[in-house]
């Protein structure tokens, strides 16, 4: 039962992230919306791991890898945003 609640919450988080991505105007908001989405996906994976005791190790490994990938992509997004802000400030001068 609790597994079902967690899975639905995870899917809900993904939906919130997608909605936020569609509504956001600022790049930072868009990046954060994608992060909410990825939190939902990771939560779903962990729910899959915890269905039967003992917890399955494979989804946990996947989530760890996924977090590393998501952080690197987020870092690239933030770097691009900073560069964009600098370039736009330059062109306004």
């Amino acid at each position: 039962m609790s597994g079902l609640i967690y899975s639905l919450c995870a899917l809900g988080l993904v939906m919130i992230g997608l909605y936020g991505l569609a509504r956001a105007h600022h790049g930072l908001q868009q990046l954060l919306a994608i992060n909410v989405m990825s939190a939902g996906v990771f939560m779903l994976l962990l729910t899959m791991a915890a269905r039967h005791p003992p917890a399955d190790a494979v989804p946990q490994a996947l989530v760890l890898t996924g977090i590393v990938v998501a952080i690197s992509a987020l870092a690239l997004g933030l770097a691009l945003l900073r560069r964009l802000a600098a370039e736009e400030a330059e062109s306004h001068d």
Binding site: L18, V41, L44, M48, L62, A73, G77, L81, L84
Partner: peptide, 26 residues
């Protein structure tokens, strides 16, 4: 700006793909 847009689309696409992977594993 083009690169940032590309990144957003790419990341969203990957996340949907990963969601599918999670469902398949489940």
């Amino acid at each position: 700006r083009a690169a940032f847009r590309y990144l957003l689309v790419s990341l969203t696409g990957s996340m949907l793909f990963l969601l599918g992977v999670a469902l398949l594993y489940g």
